[in-house]
Simulated scan of single mutants.
Amino acid sequence: MTGRVLHHYNACAMTDKTEGINRIDKGSFIEMNTQDAKAAGVHNGDIVTVSSRRGSIQTRAYVSDKTRKGECWMPFHYVEGGANWLTIDSLDSISSTPEYKVCAVRIDKPCCM
C-alpha cells in the first residue's frame, strides 16, 4: 500500500526544503511486518530493494507490527524512493484515476551490503 506521512505534501516540492521537517523525517522507507522481515532476513533500519513488475528502488526498512503479515506500506513523497514508480499503471475505467494504492512487490536485502 502507498500513502502519505503527516508532515509532507505530495512530492515534497516545498516541504522537504524545511529544516525542521528534515530533522524529523529521514527520507524514503517501507514498513514491513515483523514476521515477513524475519523470513526475509531484514532488520529494522536495513537498506532493502523493493521490486515490482515496473521496476525497483532501494529504501530503508522499518520493521513493526503496524502492517499485517503479507502487507507492507510505503509513502510516495520521496524522489529517491518513489513508491508510485512501482505501482501498476492501470486506470479506473470511469475517472481515469491511476491505481496507485496497491500492487504486488518483493522485498529483498541486497547481497552486497
Rank of each mutant, 00 (worst) to 15 (best):
T2V: 01
T2Q: 06
G3W: 13
G3H: 14
G3D: 14
V5Q: 14
H7I: 07
H7R: 08
H7Y: 13
Y9Q: 10
A11F: 10
A11H: 09
C12Y: 01
C12P: 02
A13L: 14
A13I: 14
M14K: 12
T15H: 11
T15N: 10
T15K: 09
D16G: 09
D16P: 01
T18V: 12
T18A: 07
E19Q: 08
E19L: 03
E19C: 01
G20V: 01
G20W: 12
N22T: 06
I24P: 05
I24G: 15
K26S: 12
K26N: 12
G27V: 09
G27N: 09
G27W: 05
S28P: 15
S28A: 15
F29T: 02
F29L: 09
M32W: 07
N33Q: 10
T34G: 03
T34S: 14
T34K: 15
T34H: 11
D36L: 14
A37Q: 12
K38C: 01
A39I: 11
A40G: 08
A40V: 06
G41M: 10
G41F: 06
H43M: 04
N44F: 09
N44M: 05
G45K: 14
G45P: 05
G45H: 13
T49C: 03
V50K: 00
S51V: 04
S52D: 02
R53L: 12
R53V: 04
R54P: 00
G55M: 03
G55D: 04
G55F: 02
I57H: 00
I57Q: 00
T59G: 01
T59W: 00
R60A: 09
R60F: 06
S64Q: 08
D65I: 02
K66S: 12
R68S: 11
R68I: 05
G70N: 06
G70E: 06
G70R: 07
C72V: 05
C72N: 03
C72K: 00
C72M: 06
M74D: 09
M74K: 04
P75C: 04
P75H: 02
Y78Q: 02
G82N: 11
G82M: 05
G82H: 02
A83K: 00
A83F: 00
W85S: 00
L86M: 04
T87Q: 08
I88E: 09
I88W: 03
S90Q: 13
L91E: 05
S93D: 12
I94L: 09
S95R: 13
S95N: 11
S95M: 11
S96F: 15
S96L: 15
S96V: 11
T97N: 14
E99I: 10
V102P: 01
V102A: 13
V105D: 02
R106E: 09
I107T: 03
I107S: 03
D108W: 10
D108F: 09
K109T: 06
P110M: 07
C111V: 06
C111W: 08
C112H: 12
